[in-house]
Amino acid sequence: MKVLLLHRQSFGAIAAHVRDLKGALKQRGYDADIVDATEWMPLPTGRKTDKAVSERLKKLCEPYDLVHAFGYRCAWACGVAIGYGEAWVYSAIDMPKTTHRLLIDKLNCAQFGICSSYAVRKVLDEAMALDLVMIPPGVPDPPSPPPTKAEARAQFDIPEGAKLLVGMSRWVSESGLTALIDALPQVAAEHPDVLLAIAGEGPMADELASRARSVDSERVRILGCVADPLTLLSASDLVIVPESRSGFSRVACEAMALSRAVLLRHGGGLPEMVDPEISGFLFASDELLGSRIVELLGLPITLETVGSAARIRVLDRYHIDQCADRIVDTYRSVLED
């Protein structure tokens, strides 16, 4: 069976998830192609834009038995171009920015909506989206053996004795990275050996660089898009995910798979990813982020123990094989109707 995996993110969690899913589908006998529609599917919608996108998308979909759209913009485009009753599904990874009736109408043209978390499913269900299933994304096994913390730190010139915080995401307003940078002086007052590494890329690059200079340019390292994000995560003492609209965090999953402790915002779908204080930690607000980091850096044995439990949780709930098996079951349900 031929499947089109449609997304519009050249960098980030969705792009990585789609690549992993393509490989997992191949192992299960599915021929999947990836199309990144970033260049020809603009974020703004409208009659003229929708018409141009629809014409291209209809031709693109012709050779495929099923189309899988990732993200709300691609789902909107499929709702317009493919319509109701055809073989297509969408994945809702993040919390929706809006539940306007026009969006829900487009989503309801799909055979299934695959939600990354119960939080995403709840919001869409309350907005009257139909045929929702909850299948969290997954990550593959990390390299075996993964680099040691010392080896990873050597690659990024991180002193062995430093307490390294890592924030990694697309640099957009919902990332929460400015709050993380702003929390650093409070952390440094209690832990003078702390460093913060910020990885990623996006439209907020200049703002993050400016904020880092104004807070503490020696302690904040703006790395940009790193070639080997798993090595950076391996170098960390604590990985922080302060995103405000996330239904699921791939960075958190990858860090947990490497037995690294994670600190997640108590919002969206992030709290579902951990057992609090057992396989991960939560913080309630930007105002409390600094004090929470101070507390956790003072508990190195706890961080190590929680990191070990985090790896077990990922293997149990967030492996790409589990995700692919359930998505294949969904595909079969669509094609057997």
Rank of each mutant, 00 (worst) to 15 (best):
R8S: 02
Q155I: 02
G280H: 04
Y30W: 14
V194N: 04
W171L: 05
L258R: 10
G202T: 04
A257M: 14
L263Y: 12
E277C: 00
V251E: 11
I135G: 09
C225D: 08
R250P: 04
P242R: 09
R221E: 07
V3W: 02
Q155H: 07
Q111G: 09
Q186F: 00
D141N: 05
K106M: 12
E254G: 02
R265Q: 13
L196K: 01
H68P: 06
G224E: 09
R211F: 04
C109P: 05
E287A: 04
L223N: 12
V220A: 06
I82E: 11
E243Q: 13
P159C: 04
K2R: 15
S259F: 02
M95G: 03
D141Y: 03
K163R: 06
R311Q: 10
S259R: 15
D193F: 02
C115P: 01
Y318N: 03
D286V: 01
C253T: 13
Y318P: 01
G267R: 11
A188L: 03
N108C: 13
E86S: 07
F11S: 14
D141K: 06
L4P: 09
L230Q: 15
M1E: 15
M128W: 15
A188K: 10
H17P: 01
M273V: 08
L208Q: 07
E272Q: 02
K97F: 00
D141A: 07
F156W: 13
T98C: 06
V89L: 14
A309E: 14
D275V: 01
F11T: 14
L288T: 07
T330P: 13
V139T: 10
L264R: 09
M168I: 01
R170H: 08
A52M: 12
G12W: 11
A87E: 15
R121F: 11
R170F: 01
V89P: 03
R153P: 03
E151H: 10
R73M: 01
E272I: 00
G161N: 15
L177N: 14
P192A: 00
E287W: 04
S173L: 04
D325K: 12
E336I: 02
K51C: 01
G79A: 08
P137T: 01
P142N: 08
E39P: 03
R101D: 05
V35W: 03
L60P: 13
K163P: 00
R265D: 08
A309P: 00
V239G: 12
W76A: 11
